[in-house]
């Protein structure tokens, strides 16, 4: 299985993996997964760091498409976006992808075969 050649897909993957390389950012994803959408301030309270540093972590997660931001009143509400994680999972399971492709090809062979 050759790696996916698309330059665009590569740069998105790069961003997702870079975003996931930080324990702080992984913890933010866990908090959003377990607690649902939350204001930035509530998330920030879990970490002993200056607010601008934490905002930078949120920016990296946003740029990777792992979280989205929505304004609600005076707050910015953050939520987990599962799609990039699903793509990462696919990246981590090339063999599963291999078999899904092969089994789809098997279906084509069966469709072409004579009923005997």
């Amino acid at each position: 299985m050759p790696p996916r050649p698309s330059v665009v897909a590569e740069s998105i993957e790069d961003r997702v993996f870079a975003a996931l390389s930080s324990p702080v950012r992984r913890e933010v994803l866990r908090l959003l997964r377990d607690g649902g959408p939350q204001p930035a301030g509530v998330l920030a309270a879990h970490f002993a760091m200056a607010r601008p540093s934490f905002s930078e972590h949120l920016r990296v997660l946003r740029d990777a498409g792992l979280v989205s931001e929505r304004k609600e009143g005076r707050q910015r509400l953050y939520r987990l976006e599962p799609v990039p994680l699903a793509e990462v999972q696919e990246w981590l399971t090339p063999y599963e992808r291999f078999w899904r492709e092969r089994m789809a090809a098997l279906g084509d062979v069966l469709d072409r075969m004579e009923d005997a």
Binding site: W99, L110, D111, M113
Partner: peptide, 14 residues
């Protein structure tokens, strides 16, 4: 790894 797939063809053919 576990993958399964349904085929509209009898087992003998598969």
């Amino acid at each position: 790894i576990e993958v399964d797939q349904f085929y509209p063809h009898p087992p003998g053919k598969v």
